[in-house]
Amino acid sequence: MTSMDSAIAHHPATFPQTARAAFAKAYPDQPVKLSHDLVGHSLLTLDALATLAERMPAASVEYNLGKLPLGVRPEDTPSNGLTLGETIRTIETNGSWAVLKNVERDPAYGALLDAALAELEPIVVAQTGPMLHREAFIFLSSPGSVTPFHMDPEHNILLQIIGNKTMMIFPARDEVLVPAQKSEDFHGGGHRNLEWQDGFKARGTPFPLAPGDAVHVPVKAPHFVENGPAVSVSLSVTWRSDRSVAEGELHSFNALLRKRGLPTGAVSDRPERQGLRRLVYRIMRKLGA
């Protein structure tokens, strides 16, 4: 048995049956707290993650100072002055935040992702079709770090491995939080960070996470994360679906229409059924519009 095989065999199941049942009730539209069994996994220690980070391409890592305002602009995010390996190995004291992107490209971490998602695949396929573009991200945060208010385009489950944090999750498709034009810009390559207003907080639900806890975050549900008093390590397992792809296409179509002064259309909560609008968008895109 290789070291990779033994790492995977060490934890044969990621999500217990109770977590899978809770996920089935909530997916795809509702956030829900889950549980998992990856705490203590040999691939998810700080040393293992520092070693992984040092062999990853620069484009797949992002790290900076961690104590940031909720609404920080991307261009205003300060560097911490350390290398990535130093950042991870000294994260307890350096006041930083780091993310390792697409760790599934490493075979051992790819096997970890595949094993986790295989347990959820029957539930996902029944609701939103095949799991597309499976990816995994690892987040490391110093005590007290804040991940600013933002949204992501994928279906996501965040698994807490080390330390505590609170994720505040807001409803997807709330245009007070995410105006239609922000969604259009986002799907055209705009940044994930959102404009924060203090009045928004009442619209969110806090999900406190300790090691062994996980949370399902629906596609584009705005959220921010506040780290607890110790180092935090979290694993995020994500996928796309025909529904998430359709939603992106329809917002991109609206952006094209808006640019031409034409009326935009509503994006429904079942965008995969809006086949005619998606077809027109694909034709316009092929024609170079």
Rank of each mutant, 00 (worst) to 15 (best):
residue 63 Y to E: 03
residue 239 W to T: 00
residue 162 I to Q: 13
residue 275 G to N: 04
residue 237 V to H: 04
residue 68 L to V: 14
residue 273 R to A: 10
residue 108 A to P: 04
residue 113 L to Y: 07
residue 265 G to H: 08
residue 43 L to R: 07
residue 31 P to A: 15
residue 95 G to N: 14
residue 170 F to T: 01
residue 116 A to C: 04
residue 90 T to M: 02
residue 234 S to M: 02
residue 51 T to V: 12
residue 227 N to E: 07
residue 53 A to T: 09
residue 48 A to Q: 01
residue 213 D to I: 05
residue 244 S to V: 00
residue 109 Y to V: 01
residue 19 A to D: 02
residue 153 P to D: 07
residue 177 L to N: 09
residue 49 L to Q: 01
residue 16 P to R: 02
residue 53 A to F: 07
residue 180 A to L: 05
residue 93 T to F: 10
residue 171 P to Q: 12
residue 73 R to E: 05
residue 180 A to G: 08
residue 36 H to E: 05
residue 183 S to T: 06
residue 89 R to Y: 12
residue 81 G to K: 10
residue 230 A to W: 00
residue 228 G to D: 02
residue 3 S to N: 11
residue 155 H to W: 00
residue 212 G to E: 14
residue 258 R to M: 00
residue 241 S to N: 06
residue 159 L to K: 06
residue 85 G to P: 11
residue 60 S to G: 12
residue 74 P to A: 01
residue 59 A to Q: 14
residue 4 M to I: 14
residue 224 F to A: 12
residue 6 S to Q: 15
residue 220 K to E: 11
residue 75 E to F: 01
residue 113 L to S: 09
residue 225 V to Y: 06
residue 92 E to P: 00
residue 179 P to K: 05
residue 185 D to E: 15
residue 190 G to M: 08
residue 253 F to E: 02
residue 220 K to L: 07
residue 275 G to L: 11
residue 265 G to D: 06
residue 226 E to A: 04
residue 23 F to S: 03
residue 166 T to W: 02
residue 196 W to E: 09
residue 231 V to K: 01
residue 282 R to Q: 10
residue 200 F to K: 04
residue 114 D to C: 03
residue 107 P to Y: 12
residue 110 G to K: 06
residue 1 M to E: 05
residue 200 F to W: 15
residue 13 A to T: 14
residue 72 V to I: 15
residue 225 V to G: 06
residue 10 H to P: 00
residue 107 P to M: 02
residue 32 V to F: 05
residue 193 N to H: 13
residue 52 L to E: 14
residue 37 D to E: 15
residue 75 E to G: 02
residue 240 R to W: 06
residue 185 D to N: 15
residue 153 P to E: 09
residue 180 A to R: 09
residue 239 W to M: 05
residue 77 T to S: 08
residue 49 L to N: 06
residue 58 A to K: 14
residue 145 S to K: 11
residue 287 L to W: 13
residue 43 L to S: 08
residue 273 R to S: 12
residue 20 R to G: 00
residue 174 D to Y: 07
residue 96 S to K: 08
residue 16 P to F: 03
residue 237 V to S: 02
residue 23 F to C: 03
residue 78 P to W: 09
residue 265 G to S: 08
residue 247 E to Q: 07
residue 187 H to M: 10
residue 225 V to T: 15
residue 147 T to W: 13
residue 75 E to M: 06
residue 112 L to E: 07
residue 68 L to E: 08
residue 86 E to W: 02
residue 171 P to A: 06
residue 124 V to Y: 09
residue 282 R to S: 03
residue 84 L to G: 09
residue 40 G to C: 11
residue 230 A to E: 08
residue 44 L to R: 12
residue 75 E to T: 03
residue 270 R to A: 12
residue 185 D to W: 09
residue 251 H to S: 10
